[in-house]
Write a protein that binds this DNA or RNA. Sequence first.
DNA 1: ACTCATTGGTTTTTT
DNA 2: ACCAATGAGT
Length: 741
Amino acid sequence: MDISPILDPLNDEQRAAVTAPAGATLVLAGAGSGKTRVLIHRIAWALTALGASPHNILAVTFTNKAAAEMRHRIEKLLGMPGGAMWVGTFHGIAHRLLRLHHQLAGLPPGFQILDSEDQQRLIKKLIRAQELDDTRFVPRDVQYYINKLKDDGVRPAQVKAGYDPMQQTLAKLYAAYEETCQRSGVVDFAELLLRAFELLRDNASLAAHYRARFTHVLVDEFQDTNSIQYAWTRLMAGNDGSPFVVGDDDQSIYRWRGARVENLRQFSRDYPNATMFRLEQNYRSTGNILDAANALIANNSGRLGKNLWTSGGKGEPIHVYAAYNERDEADFVLHRILEWNRRGGARREVAVLYRSNAQSRVFEEAFLSARVPYKVYGGLRFYERAEIKDALAYLRLVSNRHDDASFERVVNLPTRGIGARTLEGLRAAARQRGESMWAAAARMLSGMPEQKLPGELSAAEAFGARGATALLGFLQLIDRLDADTKGLPLHEQIDHVIQNTGLIEHFRKDKQDKGEARIENLEELVSAARGFDADALSPGTEGEKLPPLEAFLAHAALESGEGQADEWDDCVQMMTLHTAKGLEFPLVFMAGMEDGLFPHQRSIDDLEGLEEERRLCYVGITRAMKQLYVSYAEQRRLHGMDSFGVPSRFIEEIPAALVEEIRPRVQVARPAIGVARFRPVAPEAAAPGIKLGARVRHTRFGDGVILNLEGQGSQARVQVNFEHQGAKWLMLSYANLEIVR
DNA sequence: ACTCATTGGTTTTTT
DNA sequence: ACCAATGAGT
């Protein structure tokens, strides 16, 4: 086979990495240095020069999108289908393993996947069931606690709760949660990974089988792996196997969800013979943009070290705009985009990046009124919509009666007279016997004589006559749906369920326009099912055939369905900095660059958090190919309150030589000659009594002492050390400080 | 069971 | 400001 297409498009560094000898390999790849390309060409290299077959390849990514792209590009490069390769996300591949070996993994054959919303609802139910104070045990926090333990591989039995009653209760909740999941036959996302890990850890011969098979294990975005993913990768690759991992410690922005950058270092320790490569030549951005990124990230400690360079030119400076407020900022961005447009630039080449989703609003309003098409990424995805999840819950019950989460979701939707009382009785009964709600209901309503446990109530006692009838109706409904749809094609199954559960009527009643949209979404679900082809999604199935309904449900949970339909419309792209990772745009705006917003207030105080924010900023800067605009608002309406901001510290970390400040348009009356703000104004003149050490009062921040003064006239700033809020920089002209004493 | 008012809380996101 | 979740009242 001709290997020139594999090696020719590569630079020296890339080629060295791609042709590395079989064995552990670590590629530190800077932003825009051809990371994915190296991964893909490495696979091609393994298949040609190293004599591997597609059967031997396991390639793991974090997102479905990345996995799909990888498969696509390999097949294109090699000109052949790579069906026998395992290419997928950590979760997808873990899922596949668990389906194949569900018995060894201790799972029922039809187990289903709990997404994080389902998980939270279930946890909430458990907290209530244990009659705990849900202000002390916040479902979200408990969810985080449980997932953290799972990410670290800790099972309930191994939790060290000590004598702290809070910890003990949490540990009890974790145990109860696990029990419920196991009984219901459902698995959450963290559980997929943990089970797959334990499966290999506890079954030496199975692990040996896969190690023998996957002689080439490749991992993308290695800096995003958590402990379990890393441990699993090691089991899969073996200690003397050939893991080929690619990552960039400077782009680690998911520490908050369990990612461990340390895994990059750990890799070198665990594989002392590993070859390491650095990709530092950047093909994306101008020199100025790279210099800015390099300078910024140099402020982080403990980096593995990397300096991006380009053979291209310096390009334009980084533009910094100090907006008066957030609307002025949006206006500014809008006009620059119109200008870009006028000069022949496409809208899809432009990205507006921000720290948090709420910030998109002002831009949307500005774009809307100027009729500039835009697309906001993020937000609710298809399979996460309430009505879709309702329909899926029915389907899940049809497929598995013991799924309590689904049971609770739809037992009274649409309302059929199964109220809180009835459910409480049912929950209590189920808890007492340690069975699912379905099982408890069926048992109590069967009318069969049974042996009662002491203190157990009869159906009539527990639910009342009306509740009992209604509940029986629900059980019969589900059974009927199951019987009526057996053997039907998937989409007809789903259509039948939607038509016969009363969901349509339920949403039709919705007075607002929402009901209509919901019904359309349900119809869309049917057509999604019609187009669903399980084989196309996980090719190379070797006896891992799943009933179509179950395959579809797993698909819905694992791929929440990021619609890529209108990606090619010519729209301005708007998204958070996190979402932007891995993408590139000729023109990039980073908006809302104010301390407290970015870096975010909640990360500002600890070093680790701040460094992660800095990496996020690094990610943002390195998205830009040709032009980068950075902006902040001196005044911003946040949570309904006006507040004054100071420029993000990250702006100052960009060398001044690379920056060109854009002066705000002169407001209101033009000064007669020259620029007023350059006229020296004694601080006293602007604000009497404002001097170092003075005690001042701020309407929001309270009392404090002036630490520092800077700037002149309308640009004057003060740094005040507030008694309760700590030190803050404020614009003197907006801060409205009152001198105390 | 549904409607309306009040309350709390607001980073980032995949799977 | 805005959303979701809760609680009181019809």
